[in-house]
């Protein structure tokens, strides 16, 4: 009961945090209870990161924070004060897609596209660990990403192809 009164009478305490998202620094006023994904979508209007289940199962909200992938529906924005975030918007532009995005397009790694931002962000975290992942490693890695359309076959194809293209680009750069 006291909590109900608290809910009615207290004003949310906001704090200002700094997030560097896709290279741009933002100072944002947030309530502690605001989820990272909600801040990205509602405050910064970066709506490429999706909310599918809101229970940390589907992975549509996967982004990178300080280089590691996470489910942004299961984190408070306030925990990330000072962090560097990358969302799907930070990878490529419609006329210049990231190799992994291109691979999803070429291999029909999506149908409705709702899970795709999370799939792509998760796949890129895999490439940080294994430059040439096996099909088994890819399907194990995508454990935390659900797709209800394609049955995963083409998604695994796309990640494998994206990995090859990314590796080829790396070789070009070092050559």
């Amino acid at each position: 009961m006291w909590r109900y009164r608290y809910f009615l009478t207290s004003k949310p305490v906001k704090q200002t945090i700094t997030l560097t998202v896709n290279g741009c620094e933002h100072a944002i006023e947030v309530e502690p209870r605001e989820l990272l994904v909600d801040v990205l979508r509602n405050h910064l209007r970066l709506t490429g990161t999706h909310v599918g289940c809101d229970t940390s199962q589907c992975g549509a909200c996967v982004i990178h924070a300080n280089g590691a992938s996470l489910k942004s529906c299961t984190a408070f924005a306030i925990q990330f004060d000072g962090a560097e975030l990358t969302t799907i918007e930070g990878l490529g532009q419609p006329d210049k897609l990231h190799p992994m995005q291109q691979a999803f397009q070429q291999h029909h790694g999506l149908q409705c596209g709702f899970c795709t931002p999370g799939m792509v962000m998760s796949a890129l975290d895999l490439l940080d660990r294994h430059q040439q992942p096996s099909r088994h490693q890819i399907s194990e890695w995508l454990e935390g990403n659900l797709c209800r359309c394609t049955g995963y076959h083409n998604i695994v194809n796309a990640v494998a192809a994206g990995a090859e293209q990314a590796a080829a680009l790396d070789t070009d750069k070092t050559a």
């Binding site: 940390s56 992975g59 299961t74 998760s122 975290d125 895999l126 454990e143 935390g144």
Partner: peptide, 9 residues
Amino acid sequence: IGDPQVRNR
């Protein structure tokens, strides 16, 4: 444990 994103956090 869980999935890669859970293991990262």
